[in-house]
Design a protein around this nucleic acid. Structure first.
Lengths: 378, 378
DNA sequence: GGCTATACTGAATCCAATT
DNA sequence: AAATTGGATTCAGTATAGC
């Protein structure tokens, strides 16, 4: 029978040969301190976000949102969270090679604190990266903007570290020959990729998509590099590392997660060396809000819109709605309402007068799209 | 001759009547301290990250770091930047109304420090917003991802401040009827919008696009609100505020920028009031008790109510409650009870029979509202 | 089998007025 | 002031059920 999965190791200190491609069950700081100094090329960290949620949140259909209320995400104060952050960042810095880099992911709840802490400790920020979610959870109460992204920080160990790995050419080639930007678009982890328990419930509340990890590893590591994940969870980092021909070290406190990760990684088939190229992420299909046309001055507030047969009129307002008398709503709603229909595509229905002619606002949208697609020529 | 531009004011303290729609030339903290407490609705701040403070050059960015003591030096400069940040955030918090909100924009060089500081001071983050640039500057050396975005933080003055302004419905209506996300796409400020000196050089190094400020003000202010910008620069905030029928206060240290901003704002033509009305949803409608529908005869006692699938029935009573058997309570409570839920919107749940069709009682409520509006005019 | 309708879900700091 | 009550609020998907 062949040995297929990673194995727990509890001896101390780790012999050089033993700690690669294994999951260490324990506290992130303790376990990192057992690793040799300057031994890993890249660290990916998905620490607790310290969400500080209040009461229950219900959807409009009265179902309850399954919140992240696990004990590991609870901290007494910002101070306590900062102390925790500094501790693991410091331990991480010791095990990082001089030209190694660190990735951290977070949300607005914690990422500012993490960013400030890592600057304080001497890390040097190379980029902040925005993971734009194609399918984020809505804001159910309509009290804020839909929280549609998370933030990653990519940092080198030192300000003067200049020869960190960045596969610029590969990224550019995989991105229609334009350089990879700091905003990435990926779906959240769901469907078949999402690990489930026997009862069908999600195995881990915050499992990250493999595509995200793939881009990270393809950008900042070479085949054979060692990637450390001190908050291993169900092992996304390990699975992607193995598939991409990188070595990994995972640290995870919960035995349940460790078991799941072991099985998951054992099931991964590494790619052939030839196939180690990146799967391109979805290209951004820009939704252009009507508000953007107003904000951009392509349509000015007060402009009269009319349909192609000039039977109906509406007036553009500064907030990006349009009004017939005192009745104001979206271009679609008002279009439907004046015609007595249930629905209407306002983009094709409404026109602006240009001299004697009428131009559908959809053409202005095209114009806006072109402007937005045009890259600056340095 | 009409007075067309904002005017400098140097008296102290400011009389209530004097400080609106003016540019105060001076240091942001000093000038904010002269403003009345709890007097502005929204603050937009675009702070420097490379600033002069007490004669010492701030350098959280890549500028010359002494080889001998760079860790200490970095710590020193971050410390100084944090002190500056806390000072202006504190002064800003004093002038903010209890339900006021603060916007700050920054890049990875400073935004993590700003975010951590404002959390420490008691601000409550509502969203972080990503401004994705359609035309960012490329990364010339190919050593990093193209830095294609900046980050904004939107925060309320206190954690418990619940009734801050957020024009949810207007934003949604202007965005193809889906809620506005936390990632926004705008071009950088260039072309005709970019202010130039006589020699053709850009007048200000970090002039923000008006579209960005328009989105911010349309999202978080009402017409007539006061917007403070403590780092006014060439007055983008003032220009957009004036155009959108908001009042502004600008603080700027450089006389050159003040002059440019004055002229710029003087040239702005405000929009008509009609074009500035904000779309509002049901939340803004006056509350109509179900009892008043009964009193007005729109629903008569004894009428049978049913849900859209005719699964449940209830009977209207003269006191404006409804009853299932002997169990009587509000339309909401009974609606929840029959379904076994803990909440229910009775207005949309219950219907009256009209011939073969069912009409939601919400339509009767609309009718009642119209009658009340008519009666108020008569 | 294939199509349609319904149900369920995701790192969420998610109410406001009245009694 | 704390507790109660009225009643407003969701996007992109996957999974399952029904026909």
């Amino acid at each position: 029978m062949k040995r297929s999965g990673p194995v727990l190791v509890h001896s101390q200190p780790f012999p050089e040969i033993d700690w690669r491609n294994q999951i260490l069950q324990g506290h992130c700081v303790t376990e990192m301190e057992r690793l040799p100094a300057e031994s890993v090329d890249v660290i990916f960290a998905d620490p607790p976000y310290n969400l500080q949620l209040g009461g229950d949140l219900m959807r409009p259909d009265h179902s309850k949102v399954d919140a992240v209320d696990d004990a590991w995400d609870q901290f007494e104060s910002f101070q306590a969270y900062d102390a925790f952050t500094r501790a693991w960042l410091l331990a991480a810095r010791r095990v990082l090679k001089p030209n190694g880099t660190l990735w951290v992911i977070g949300s607005y709840h914690n990422i500012f604190r993490v960013g400030a802490s890592l600057q304080d400790l001497g890390y040097w920020i190379l980029n902040d990266i925005v993971w734009r979610k194609t399918n984020p959870m809505p804001n159910f109460r309509g009290k804020r903007f839909q929280n549609a992204h998370e933030t990653l920080i990519w940092a080198s160990r030192d300000a003067k570290a200049k020869s960190y790995t960045f596969n610029y050419e590969a990224l550019k080639a995989s991105n229609d020959d334009v350089q990879m930007r700091s905003d990435w678009l990926f779906p959240i982890c769901s469907g078949g990729e999402r690990l489930k328990n026997e009862d069908g419930a999600k195995a881990h509340p915050t499992q990250k998509p493999e595509a995200l990890l793939a881009r990270i590893l393809l950008a900042s590591t070479k085949p054979g590099d060692v990637v450390l994940d001190p908050f291993f969870g169900t092992g996304t980092t390990g699975a992607v590392a193995k598939r991409l021909g990188r070595d990994f070290v995972g640290i995870e406190r919960e035995e349940e997660y460790v078991k799941i990760a072991q099985q998951r990684i054992a099931d991964v088939e590494p790619l052939d060396d030839d196939d180690l190229k990146m799967a391109a992420g979805k290209r951004a299909e820009p939704r252009v809000p009507f508000a953007s046309l107003v904000e951009a001055g392509l349509v000015t507030p007060g402009t009269e819109l009319t349909d192609s047969k000039r039977r109906y009129r509406a007036r553009v307002r500064a907030d990006g709605t349009i009004a017939v008398g005192d009745d104001a709503a979206s271009i679609h709603r008002i279009g439907a309402r004046v015609q007595g229909l249930d629905a209407c595509n306002g983009w094709t229905f409404w026109h602006v007068k240009e001299g004697k002619n009428l131009t559908p606002i959809d053409e202005l949208r095209q114009l806006a799209r072109q402007r937005m697609a045009t890259a600056a020529i340095a």
